[in-house]
């Protein structure tokens, strides 16, 4: 019995790391650019489909893991340059509407390319099978998922805390004007951050593809969950996204054994309660 719970907690950690990767991009973009990206879930979807295509074409998951997020980041860069940059100055309402439009376009294009039925992606050969600890067995791919995303989280933390780029992002989140006045090219910073944030959503999509496959209508669901995590963790907070992501993942995973239908209900209720009682999130600053 205890093993079942251990199994679910580990599953929850994996799920939580996926949630973290999606949400941290959303929260970075909101923090620095003060931009609400409703197309974030659609890029996750695109990541899963790119993984499917690259794996079926080349049979190499590792290529997909590197190329998938890069392609999506490049796409995001182009989109930012051509369209998103024009709407930074508009109120959030307009940003939501435009990105909703983008999400719709990506979703419909994906269906045109990959068809309306979901695709499954095989687990990479190297990571098939299970690891045994005594009488407890756990799939290798899920362990890899946790370890790999933890590595990405650490790299991301180093990038934000220890590099000049990270310092600019953090400073820009405080005051965009000041950073701009001090002579940094704020628009380039915006483009890079947008591409990075969206690329992370793509990475999450690639990583989750061998577990859940690629489904054309997953975008809104992913977006909803990302918002739950971002709101609970506090908008713009890196550590908040990590803790809240893991929390939501583990709670959701444990609930599936107890009361599966109630899991989502509770998660969104938690989101509403946090907005009402602590609008800056559990880890954000007031």
């Amino acid at each position: 019995m205890l093993n079942v719970y251990l199994f679910q907690v580990l599953n929850g950690l994996g799920l939580g790391m996926i949630y973290f990767l999606i949400s941290v991009g959303l929260t970075l973009i909101f923090g620095l650019l003060n931009f609400v990206n409703f197309a974030h879930g659609a890029f996750f979807l695109l990541g899963s489909y790119l993984c499917y295509t690259l794996v079926t074409l080349t049979g190499n998951f590792w290529l997909a893991l590197v190329a998938g997020p890069l392609v999506i980041a490049m796409l995001a860069w182009a989109l930012e340059r051509s369209l998103i940059q024009r709407i930074y100055h508009l109120p959030h309402t307009f940003q939501i509407l435009v990105t909703l439009g983008i999400a719709l376009i990506i979703q419909e294009l994906s269906i045109m390319i990959w068809g309306p039925v979901g695709k499954s992606v095989p687990t990479p050969e190297l990571l098939q099978g299970v690891v045994r600890f005594g009488n407890f067995a756990y799939p290798i791919y899920r362990l890899f998922l946790i370890a790999f995303s933890a590595g990405v989280a650490i790299l991301l933390w180093l990038l934000l805390e220890r590099t000049r780029f990270g310092a600019l992002v953090r400073a820009g989140s405080e005051s965009t004007e000041m950073v701009s006045l001090l002579g940094s090219n704020i628009f380039r910073l915006f483009s890079i951050t947008f591409a990075l944030g969206v690329g992370l959503a793509g990475l999450a999509g690639v990583l989750s593809a061998p577990l859940r496959g690629a489904h054309p209508f997953i975008g809104p669901e992913v977006l909803g969950l990302a918002f739950v995590v971002v709101v609970i963790g506090g908008m713009g907070s890196f550590s908040g996204a990590l803790v809240a992501g893991l929390l939501v993942g583990v709670v959701q995973s444990l609930m599936t054994t107890l009361w599966p239908q109630g899991a989502s209900l509770m998660i969104y209720a938690a989101m509403a309660v946090v907005i009402l009682l602590r609008p800056y999130g559990l880890f954000g600053r007031a």
Binding site: V36, H92, V231, Y268, I275
Partner: peptide, 23 residues
Amino acid sequence: RKGIYFVMLTLALTQMAYFLAYT
């Protein structure tokens, strides 16, 4: 709540209503 938090709240309540109806 105002602005983006208002939007998020309406979104959360809609999702709750959906999952309630589903349950």
